[in-house]
Each structure stands twice: as C-alpha cells, then as structure tokens.
Design a binder for these strands. Structure first.
Lengths: 347, 347
DNA sequence: CCACGCATTGGTAATGATACCAATGCGGGC
DNA sequence: GCCCGCATTGGTATCATTACCAATGCGTGG
C-alpha cells in the first residue's frame, strides 16, 4: 500500500536523501546554527524533493510546545465575538500558529469541561472570553501547568492571567454624555448578565455620566432575556417617561429594537437609543444606530500578540507576568440618538 | 520542580500504582476486552488517584486518528459561515470531537497552505467551505492519505469527497417567482464571484424562473466588489428601469442596500429586492428584507455528522464513499419585495 | 496424559523528532 | 609541536503510547 507512505517522509528519509545524519537534517529544519551552508542547501533540496513536513505529534511528544493556541468564545453567532476570532486568526497566522476553537454556544457547563480537554490536547496557550465565572478553577489548573492564558473582553477575578479589555467606562460615559447633550432627563440603562466586569464598568460609566449631569441613574439589568421587553416598555410609559435608552451590549440592543419595532415606537422621535457595541448593519437599520464601537478585531489581535509573546518567553518568567492592555472605543454617531445625519446633504 | 510532573502521570505510572503491566493498563484505558474485572477495577482506581489523562500526542504518533476535525471557512465575519461553524461545533461536541478552525479571511492564498498544515497537524477529517478552486490539489493529497473530506455549501469539481449543499436552484426560483408575481418585468440578478457552483445554481434558478415567466434574464456578476454599486445604478436608471433586484448572497445584498440608501432610493417603492441568504437583523432594516433563508446551522451539523460517520467507518471503505446531501431553503417574506407586513394589524 | 484452546498478562519494538553527548577536523596561540 | 577552542556532524536515548508476540495458567476433549 503506497498510500500510507506517499508524502509522509520522515526526517530520517530526508537525511538519507541528503546523505547526512538525522540530527543535521533536524538542525536545518529548526534553523539550528551549526550547519554549513552547503549541507543546509542539500538538506533543503531533499526536503523539497520529498515534500517533507515535520510531524507535529512527534514534536509535541518530545516536549516542544505546539504551534497551536486555544480560543474559547461564548458564541460565534455574535458578530463581536466572531470579529475577535477573526483578529485572533489573523495574528496567529502571521506567527505560524493555528487555532483550536471552541464556542460553548450557550451551553455554559461545557466550558469547564472543554478547558480540561484543551490541556490534554496540548495547546501552547489559551485565549478566552469567559462564559462563566466558575471557569476560574479549571483555568487555574492550566496555569499551574505553565500554560499562559489571556482573557479577552472580560476578566475573571483571582486568576493569574493576562487580559485585554476595552475602555468600557469611558465608552459608556461618552455615550451617555451625548444623550445628556440632547437634553434627555430620564435615560435608562438596559442590559442582562451582570456577572462580568465589562458590563459592570459600562454601568459605572453610565452612572458617572448621569451623576455628573445631576440626573438620577436608572439601571435595568435582568437575568432572563425574556422579560427585558416588558420591563423596558413599562418605563417608557411611566411618568415622566424615559426618553432615551443606553443598551449595554449587542444582544440587548437588538432585543430592544425588536420590541420597539413591534410596538411601533419611533426611534429617535419617541425614544432615543445608543448601544454599546457597533455592528456592520447598524447604518442600514430603520433608525441608523448610534453606537459605541469596540475594536473587536484589534482585541483579538492584541490578545494573540500578548499570548505568543508569553509562549515564546521562558516558561519560568512567563508564569510571573500578567500583561494588561486597554483598547479605546469610539462613539459612532448616526441617527438613533436624535442627531441629524452627518453632513451629506443639508437643507 | 513539581510543576512539570503534577497531574501529568503516564500510563507507566498508572501501571506501577496498580501493580500491573503497562499493556494491561493500556487495555483498560482503551476498553480492551482481555482484562479481568478485578484488574480493571484496580487500574481504574489508579487512574483516578493519579488523575491520569492519556497523552494525545503519543497516541497520534502511534497512528491513532485524533478526535479532532478540521474546519475551514472563508470568513468568520459572515454570519452564514459563523452559523455553519456553530453547527459544526455543536455536532462535533456531542461526539466528543474538537474543532481546529481556520478562516482564511480574504487571504485566499493561505488556504492551500493551511490544508497542508491540517494534514501534518493530524486531523481525523476535514470540513471545508472552499475559498478557491485551486485548493482542489492539496485536498486531493489529503484524500490520498485517507483523510475524509466534506465540502459545505460549495463544491469543487473533480474531488472525491462528500458534500452538503442547499437547494440553491429551487431557492432562487422561489424568490424570483415571488418578484414576478408582484408584476416586475425587469428583474436584475446581482452578485460577484462566480467561481463556485452554489452561485451558478442560484443564477440558473433565476434564469429558469425568468424564462418560465417569459421574461428576459439580466445577470450582473462582477469580479471586483467595488463596481457593483455603479453598475446597479446604471440599470436602475436605464429605460425601462429595472424595478426589482435579486442579490446572490449576503455580501452583495448589504452592498446593494448601502448603495440604495446612499442614493436615497426607496425600497420597495422605487425598487424591490430579495436577497439570497437571510440574517438576523434583516427584519430591523429600514426596509425589512425578504430573503431566501438557508439552514446554515443544519448545514454544519449535517456535514459534521457525515464526516464523523466516515471517520468511524473503516478507512478502506470510506475512501469509496462520497455522501451527498441537499438541504431545503425557505423564502422569508418581509417588506423589501413589496409585500405588506404579515397579518399583525391591517387597516 | 498430552495437547490444545482460551483468557489473561507483560515485555519489547516501533512511531518521528530532538536533546545530549561524543567525535572529527581545523586554525591559532603558546 | 602541542593543545585548546570552535564549527560541524552524527549516534543514541528518550518522550507516551500501542501493536505484536510470547508466556502463563487453567480447563477440557481426545
């Protein structure tokens, strides 16, 4: 059966073809320094001729950290996370790393389990957007084995790991300030899922902006998605009515917009809205959405950069470092906040 | 240094702890049959005590196919592909497989290269939404090594592999028929990228529907994205004007909608539009989009199911089978086609 | 009673790459 | 002339696991 062998040349085959020892061949493959130019050339041509590719499994077995990083996100359907994943891919590829992806997709219990898998599968490092605060224990185990971890977008307390966050506080503040400038008095902050500090920071930014304006903060953060709609409507119909909404993430924004559409409530005439987290279609919505844009791709790229740096540095020193990074947000003004369209044509 | 060893027990450690030979321990781990009940119990308790986990790298090196499948998609930012990936994740997880993801993200040259990586990395099978027709050669190599492949959404000709497609022809037909029923005479079919048969099938479905209605087909398929806008506008301003558009995919749909918005052209009053491929925000657009909905998640799940079946079946017989599957589409009627909103309130 | 089959068990080789160590050869400093 | 260091090269053990083969012991049919 020629199948099994064809193309699966080993380093020994390469060495034989080039007429050198296996170690010499190995040195050429790994860029080792003690090889003469001619020898290296001969080996390289043998590699090309046999289309040799090193066997990752053997390398890993021998103790080399694999050129593979793990990436765990809550959900690939959310454009924010898929953009992060995109960024991770891009940066990983430039370093020749591959990506082992896991999206728990709502099944939060599977996260801890999968973290366990990651370690037996042998990843050199892990990027994670945590779905659950309980995941901190299995992550600690990973850390104890010397596998570096970077958290993206959210932070788990008590975990010795790097993190890349966005300026949640400042972003929220900017958004709310903008609503205040439009003269809104009752601005409701809506979201669900307060487990994570990224949401907490946004709420804090909201509260600060409200306090600075001398307004009363009203935060509506619910656990179950289903009741958001009903409770927002209540506030819109209270006296005096809420005239502006600040939604804490993508999912909430869309949910609220759907509710408003269903109830035939005009945006921004009846209620203004600014969402945290921008998305591609925001400009095509019935009321083009003003949003706090997060640099999702940059988040993934920066995180990957940090992680690969950790992987490359000595394991001993890496275990002491926990790099932190903060990325800026931008307020993208469209029309849902009540602004006129940008200067394209004014009459 | 207790770190390196902690938790990394080998099968030899387990065997020693249990007082048996390594082979016996290995048989217990792999569910081998020739082990007495007491011995198995002793080994199992040793495994638990040492928290032993088999080393995947060594297993793969020894020739076992890993519980890992490769997934290659063109682009994670496209909700269609990320939904596919979601489906793959779900099904893979239920079989205990993990997913090695690669998204070439526009850098189509990297696809072939990455396919090469997949084989050295040792995946048990590959799911791919091809980005490039040239990828057929490296894929063939993979097939020759006995690694099963399933193509999703698109097919490469001349490759002995399974495939899961959607009913592109029928979906397009349904969409165009609907526009015809609204009385449109000039219906333009717009898209870019005609390399793949999924697009070809949609165009064919469009042409069939137009022919059946006795109308003249007008297909505008361009290579470069940039000129789409200009060329569509030309047609809209020709005499008699094009009054309806059928866009061949997600990306084109959005591009066209952006152009129409920029030019202040009303949908559906001035031009009706139906897109192939639905997306979450379609109902919140200024003109809620009528679209052909593809079962993206099901696509991923079915493909994964087929792939794992192939992996599990004997490699010899698997090399002969190329399963095929076709999934239905659904026309989701909203307003961009000119229909009134669904019976929610009529006055 | 012997041979044979069967269940059970363990030793050893092999998988592919690399670390470690040894060996070779050459040039220069003493 | 001798020895040391340096560049270069190769042999072999090792990583964790499993396939293959051998060995043991027990029971049973001829």
């Amino acid at each position: 059966m020629p199948k099994k062998r064809s193309g699966n040349a080993t380093i020994a085959d390469v060495a034989r073809e080039a007429g050198v020892g296996v170690m010499t061949a190995s040195r050429v493959v790994n860029g080792g320094k003690y090889v003469s130019a001619e020898t290296a050339a001969r080996v390289r041509s043998a590699i090309a001729k046999l289309s040799y590719e090193p066997n990752e499994a053997a390398r890993v077995l021998k103790g080399k950290s694999p050129r593979l990083i793990g990436l765990m996100v809550p959900n690939l359907a959310d454009p924010f996370f898929s953009a992060c994943a995109h960024g991770v891919q891009l940066m990983a590829a430039t370093y020749g790393f591959r990506t082992l992806l896991f999206a728990c997709e709502g099944n939060v219990d599977s996260e801890a389990e999968e973290i366990g898998m990651m370690k037996s599968r042998g990843v050199a490092g892990l990027l994670i957007v945590p779905s659950r605060v309980d995941s901190v224990d299995p992550l600690k185990e990973l850390r104890e084995r010397g596998i570096p971890i970077i958290m993206l977008d959210r932070t788990l307390p008590g975990l010795d790991a790097g993190e890349v966050m966005v300026e949640n506080f400042e972003g929220a503040q900017k958004a709310v300030n903008h609503l205040v400038e439009h003269g809104h008095q009752r601005i409701l902050c809506v979201g669900y899922d307060s487990q994570f500090n990224s949401i907490g920071q946004r709420v804090a930014g909201y509260e600060r902006a409200m306090a600075d304006a001398g307004l009363k903060a009203e935060v509506l953060v619910v656990d179950e998605k289903t009741s958001v709609a009903r409770r927002v409507l209540q506030r819109l119909r209270s006296q005096p009515p809420v005239t502006a909404l600040f939604t804490l993430n993508n999912v909430t924004t869309i949910q609220v917009l759907q509710t408003l559409q269903r109830e035939n409530i005009q945006v921004p005439q009846e209620v203004a809205i600014i969402g945290f987290d921008d998305f591609e279609l925001a400009s095509l919505l019935a009321a083009p959405l003003t949003a706090v844009s997060q640099p999702a791709v940059a988040l993934g790229r920066s995180g990957t950069q940090l992680l690969i740096d950790l992987i490359r540095s000595d394991a001993a020193e890496a275990s002491k470092k926990s790099p932190r990074m903060l990325l800026p947000t931008e307020l993208i003004i469209r029309r849902s906040c009540g602004c006129e369209p940008p200067p394209q044509r004014q009459d």
